[in-house]
């Protein structure tokens, strides 16, 4: 059965989006800041993401890791993930289900909260 490589297509779109975000650079300083940070003084979970994406669009990986390490790390993995997805689609395999594991879910929650805490501590 023929399968669609949705992840690879999504990665391609994300790459195009990062490239297109460089058009925002001239007006980057005019963009309104994070409302959550404005009212609480603390970075939100996605603070630094826009600057990270703009850095990625320019190929500035060092800058991208500085602004949002988790998003930059994910962007680094996207080509590998795309290759896996293309192979999966060519072989006609379905996507595997998300693991029904409390440990896996807890790990992701801890990872998300750790990324947030890291951004708060750094004052991004």
């Amino acid at each position: 059965m023929r399968r669609v490589p949705w992840l690879a297509l999504g990665a391609l779109l994300a790459g195009l989006g990062a490239w297109a975000s460089t058009w925002l650079r001239p007006v980057a300083d005019l963009l309104p800041g994070c409302a959550f940070k404005h009212f609480t003084g603390l970075a939100c979970m996605t603070c630094g993401l826009t600057r990270c994406v703009m850095a990625l669009g320019q190929g500035d990986w060092r800058g991208a890791f500085h602004w949002h390490p988790a998003a930059a790390g994910l962007a680094f993995l996207l080509p590998l993930l795309s290759l896996w997805d293309l192979r999966r689609a060519r072989r006609g395999d379905p996507y595997p289900r998300l693991p029904d594991s409390r440990k896996a879910r807890t790990f992701i929650w801890v990872l998300l909260l750790a990324v947030w805490a890291f951004q708060v501590v750094r004052g991004i």
């Binding site: 309104p32 994070c34 409302a35 939100c44 979970m45 996605t46 603070c47 993401l49 826009t50």
Partner: peptide, 14 residues
């Protein structure tokens, strides 16, 4: 909403 939309959707909505 928390994961994706804290900034992006808020800005678009505003």
């Amino acid at each position: 909403a928390v994961l994706v939309s804290v900034c992006g959707l808020g800005l678009l909505g505003l």
